[in-house]
Design a protein around this nucleic acid. Structure first.
Lengths: 249, 249
DNA sequence: CGATCCGTTGACGGTACTCAACTACCGTGG
DNA sequence: CCACGGTAGTTGAGTACCGTCAACGGATCG
């Protein structure tokens, strides 16, 4: 389950705020929800959980095909979900940010690999325990259902991008969605590399770099520092993203 | 909500077989489930439903952005779900076959348009009624949740195709998935046009046609009649679909 | 029998990929 | 302190795959 770039009216936080205090995550003080919930006498397990909850940049901690024994939430950092072809071609399915949930897959097998983009902390929650919670609080299923349906809509939007948009349109869409998701209209943080962006947009690193240059030259964006983008002309960028640009950006 | 090409362990039929007889669809004798369920005193509405349940080929019966007041199931024929860009570019999100369900979208607005590929019969079910059924039978939510999660996995697989596969790889993947979905290993029915296939695979009609010719010439497939494909070399096609082909098919 | 749609094939061109060189930026270690 | 290596990013030259435009054949239908 990925969470690509989009507004999500039904948030994970909203879903799990319903949980009673007993299900608060002890590894993440103050957080309630889909975290590894342990009791005092399970201190050994708690430590095991803690040791697993920090992931260094570049580390792949889930491989496609692994048995899906846990559901995860991101508490800090950025995670990329991706699928690979045998010859190494990669497609990034989505970037996960704090509050996003993943690992809820049918069939009990992970359908994508997960890798930390930067320093990441995770909470993991046994799927079996999730089943129990669903028994106890049926309303949560419904919320999660809406959440997954929302993700499906995002995935379908990404299909349009991958199938029908040009390189400049893809990058414009990406930057706008990223800014929107970060709650800013004229700025976006880019924790991922050009290669990651390329693998997300179905392009090559070189093409992404070139399009960045074009957007900078046309005055649509600026890059004040590494990993930051300032959106100078949101309207032009939005027109470009929707395929409404007359000629160039 | 689309149902693209894939095996679906959790079927819509399985989900709605749980429903009590009272929810049987009167427009579709013998069918129980997510059909327009009406009572005798609602005969007017029943007729209205009936008049809407048949859709002629080429008719778009849902537009992206329409209020999503109903959930639909396909009972016969094939439906294509698609999204469009302002300048007319189209991306087909998925093809729906009998038993598939769609229209379960968060936010109450359809996120894709729906058009009948051939002669289609539909059942429609008011969303408000679905809410009631969820109240009554919480287990159904869980089943539907698995169903949507399954669809999400299919959508992610399609992202790999659209973002990273070559034209021959896309067509090979499509034909194999189509055959598998139809329960046959060496044959597939193609109710849709070349243009539809192109819009589904992120290609042009011409490219699809050319690749068909190549696959025929290399002996991978044969086209015994219009709308039918015979898979002569499933291994070669599978290798091609996964990017394992050495040079050509 | 003309009209229309679908599909095929050809010629050509353009967008994006490949290969490659080069710079910038780190953190490491001499 | 600076040399060094590795990674990330940029830019250029050439190419290839696929898109565009166009002509044509076959099927269906009024």
């Amino acid at each position: 389950m990925s969470l690509a770039l989009a507004t999500r009216p039904v948030t994970q936080a909203a879903v799990f705020r319903m949980l009673p205090r007993a299900n608060a995550c002890e590894t993440c003080p103050g957080r309630r929800g889909l975290c590894a919930s342990v009791k005092p006498d399970e201190i050994g397990r708690l430590n095991a959980l803690r040791s697993l909850s920090k992931v260094a940049p570049g580390v792949t901690f889930i491989d496609e095909g692994d048995p899906a024994l846990h559901v995860f939430t991101v508490t800090s950092g950025t995670v990329k979900l991706f699928k690979s072809l045998p010859d190494g071609r990669r497609q990034i399915i989505g970037f996960l940010v704090p509050g996003d949930i993943f690992g809820f897959v049918p069939g009990g097998v992970h359908t994508a690999s997960a890798e930390a983009v930067d320093a990441v902390t995770l909470c993991r929650f046994p799927r079996r325990r999730l089943e129990q919670i669903f028994m106890e609080f049926p309303g949560m299923e419904r919320q999660l259902l809406d959440l997954v349906a929302q993700e499906l809509a995002v995935a379908q939007q990404q299909m349009v991008l991958l199938g029908r948009k040009t390189a400049p349109e893809r990058l414009a869409s990406f930057l706008l969605a990223l800014a929107q998701r970060q709650g800013k209209d004229d700025q976006a943080e880019l924790p991922m590399t050009r290669t990651d962006i390329a693998d997300y947009l179905g392009l090559t690193m070189e093409t992404v770099s070139r399009v960045f240059t074009v957007l900078k030259n046309t005055g649509s964006i600026a890059c004040p520092s590494t990993g930051k983008v300032r959106i100078l002309d949101p309207e032009a960028l939005a027109d470009l993203a929707e395929g409404l640009a007359q000629d160039d950006a």
